[in-house]
Simulated scan of single mutants.
Amino acid sequence: MRAHVGDHLIVESPTTGATRRNGEIVGVHHNDGTPPYDVRWSDSGRVSLVFPGPDAHIHHTGHPAGTAAGAGARPLSDVEVAALVRDASAAPSMHNAQPWRFRYFRGERLFHVTADLARTLPHSDADLRALHLGCGAALMNLRVAAAHTGRQPTTRLLPDPGDPTLLATVALTSPLGDEDDLCGLYPAIHARHTSRSPFADTEIPESVRTTLREAAGAEGVSLSFASGWHLQTVLDLTLEAEARNLTDQGSAADLTHWTQLPDQTPRSATEGVPPYAFGPRRHGGKAPVRDFAGGRPVPGRETADFESSPQLALLATPGDNPNDWLRAGQAMERVLLTATLEELSSSFITQALEWPDLRWPLRDPVAGAGHVHMVLRLGYGPPGPRTPRRPTRHTLDIQP
């Protein structure tokens, strides 16, 4: 059995007269097209990993994923709207707070992407910059998912000056046009996970670095890899931020709120960073991975040596306002999806970004890259575990 993204998996029922299942293959794990597959089921809109049995067969569509004739002109069903929001919500956010909400207007075929101000980090993100980055990443996933269905995502950032919580609108009224390059990123949406494990010291090839720079540049954001004295400066600033966080009550409160240890009062299982995603405690190496345990003991947690030469990429824009933050969030997710397709693992180095006096020195004054919005740790290592997401009934509102 071999398939391509966009083909359909048909599972016949062994019982006469029973309903068969049909799903679109949205991810292929092997280059030769053999199973398993990531399948979005038509009856629920959910994506699951499937190892097809003898009762399954492939229906080859004969056209690229998302280019079905007339897709852009056909109204979305509520199941399809919910599926797009599930894809969007696979985006990363600081401490996995998931600070977004979506409203879909059927008549206008229009999404509103809004900030959920009940899901902020008051001490670590007082200016809401990280909130905008996370929502920008969700916006990028929504654009990619829409393009995958054959619809052109016409996007406006901050369309209403009187409502700063309305971060973007996305209209899906036209067939796919100049954003067809986004379709190829779709398989990475549910394959991308933050990895807090050690990476190999294998250098990322220059050709791949160029591809990542181009991905950021497509969103009007610069990406640069820190090296030499600049890399050491970034590492030193991160260590300084980590030392401050250990004694800062506000930072500790944010971390405790969005993590859950066995001896704490249980919080929702659909948000935050669970202990299984903390990764090992760093024993050696220079990779500045945040310790989400915050010094608290975690039963059974291992220690490990991390890479001695971490590969850190900085995303920056000339300006530093909500529009820049949203563009940086979209660029961040576009880079991460591209990195996933290049078989790179990734995590976030945000500690110094949380302290205003440490954030500005992160920039490379030689390159003059402006305001740094995110530091990405990239490399070859194990993929991270899947972390929880809120159900769409908590994040989506469908209007006539």
Rank of each mutant, 00 (worst) to 15 (best):
249 Q>L: 15
327 R>A: 08
129 R>L: 02
213 R>A: 11
173 T>Q: 14
287 A>K: 00
323 N>L: 14
278 F>M: 00
91 A>F: 08
98 Q>I: 07
219 E>Y: 02
193 H>W: 01
374 M>V: 06
156 R>Q: 14
143 R>N: 05
144 V>I: 07
243 A>Y: 08
113 V>M: 01
218 A>Q: 14
28 V>A: 09
196 R>F: 00
2 R>E: 15
383 P>V: 10
335 V>N: 05
239 L>I: 07
270 T>F: 15
24 E>T: 10
124 S>P: 00
117 L>N: 08
384 G>L: 00
241 A>T: 10
380 Y>D: 09
387 T>V: 12
11 V>P: 05
286 K>D: 11
291 D>V: 05
2 R>H: 15
262 P>F: 14
107 G>A: 09
49 L>A: 01
241 A>E: 12
304 A>L: 03
27 G>W: 07
233 T>S: 11
390 R>W: 03
330 Q>H: 01
282 R>H: 03
45 G>A: 01
341 L>C: 07
295 G>H: 02
48 S>D: 09
31 N>Y: 10
177 G>I: 06
201 D>N: 10
329 G>L: 00
69 A>T: 06
269 A>V: 08
65 A>H: 13
52 P>A: 03
41 W>M: 04
308 S>V: 07
286 K>F: 09
159 P>G: 07
88 A>R: 04
112 H>S: 06
178 D>G: 15
72 G>M: 12
319 G>Q: 04
366 V>A: 14
285 G>Q: 05
55 D>K: 13
398 I>P: 02
313 A>T: 05
14 P>G: 02
281 R>I: 13
256 T>L: 14
251 S>M: 15
243 A>F: 09
51 F>L: 12
89 S>D: 10
30 H>A: 14
52 P>H: 05
372 V>I: 11
356 P>V: 15
